[in-house]
């Protein structure tokens, strides 16, 4: 007996059961539900698209598709931070070491020529040119580099004054217009020249001896200043530019003074 023939009564009863049909508004309700589903899906899509659009950080912390991004970025940030700190500390060490070495060199040079420098400074401080210079300089005593540059300027300015006599005299003559002012100037210049003569007579011998060690000192200091290792060097070069202008003024004054001296002597 096959399985189909076992319970024919029950099978007949089950088959004779009334078939339940869907209600009349089944398809309409189904369409409405489908429309709702579509709209909700579109909203979800729009939300997702907005999320994708909304900034890097927002995507990073709200998008859960790539959760590994957060620790990865954190780790890289830490690495960058550590590298930055180490780089900074290294650069600081290098600049400090270079500065300290430069200072030591200068100190050695200064210790060698200490007495000469002091004497020269004394003489320079007494001259009116240096007085004007000192009044113009904002912070002379801060850096030892400035001192060495001043020394160099003084040494360089002397031979140039003799060469630039004629053009500067002409320019000075053009400026001689008012008599009272000229008289005052002459008096002042005369006083200054007298002082200079005294210093030049006593210090000619010393200066000739000073010039050679000063050049050595300049040689020692120049590479430090020109080395482009740190930002401090840049400031030093800027100071040099300012000093260049002062030097030119100094030359002009000296040339004028010497021309006056010649006139008076004549």
């Amino acid at each position: 007996m096959s399985e189909e023939e076992k319970y024919p009564e029950i099978r007949e009863k089950l088959r004779s059961l009334e078939t339940i049909k869907a209600s009349g508004d089944f398809t309409r309700n189904l369409q409405l539900r489908i429309v709702e589903e579509e709209s909700s899906r579109r909203k979800e899509h729009v939300k997702k698209y907005d999320l994708e659009k909304g900034g890097f950080l927002r995507n990073l912390f709200t998008n859960r598709q790539y959760p590994w991004l957060i620790p990865a970025i954190g780790f890289t940030a830490v690495i960058f931070f550590v590298f930055y700190i180490t780089f900074l500390s290294r650069t600081n060490l290098i600049t400090e070491s270079s500065l300290s070495s430069g200072d030591s060199k200068k100190e050695t040079v200064q210790s060698e020529n200490g007495t000469l420098h002091e004497e020269k400074k004394e003489t320079q401080d007494k001259t009116p040119e240096n007085i004007t210079e000192n009044s113009k300089k904002p912070d002379e005593g801060n850096s030892s580099v400035n001192k060495s540059s001043d020394d160099r300027e003084n040494t360089v300015s002397k031979p140039q004054t003799t060469e630039n006599k004629k053009p500067i005299v002409s320019s000075f003559d053009n400026t001689e217009k008012s008599g009272n002012e000229n008289m005052k100037m002459k008096k002042d210049v005369g006083d200054n020249l007298k002082e200079r003569e005294v210093f030049s007579k006593s210090g000619d011998e010393k200066l000739s001896a000073e010039e050679s060690p000063e050049t050595d000192a300049d040689k020692a200091t120049v590479p430090e200043m020109s080395a482009p290792e740190s930002s401090k060097d840049k400031t030093v070069t800027d100071e040099f530019k300012g000093k260049g202008l002062l030097l030119k003024l100094d030359k002009i004054n000296k040339a004028g003074l010497e021309s006056l001296r010649n006139k008076i002597n004549n």
């Binding site: 059961l17 078939t19 339940i20 209600s23 089944f26």
Partner: peptide
């Protein structure tokens, strides 16, 4: 399939509303 499906689910669950 709507009638067949509703009939099948109704016979399985025994509820008309739920079957729809």
């Amino acid at each position: 399939y709507k009638d067949r499906l509703v009939n099948f689910i109704f016979r399985y669950t025994g509820s008309r509303e739920e079957s729809e």
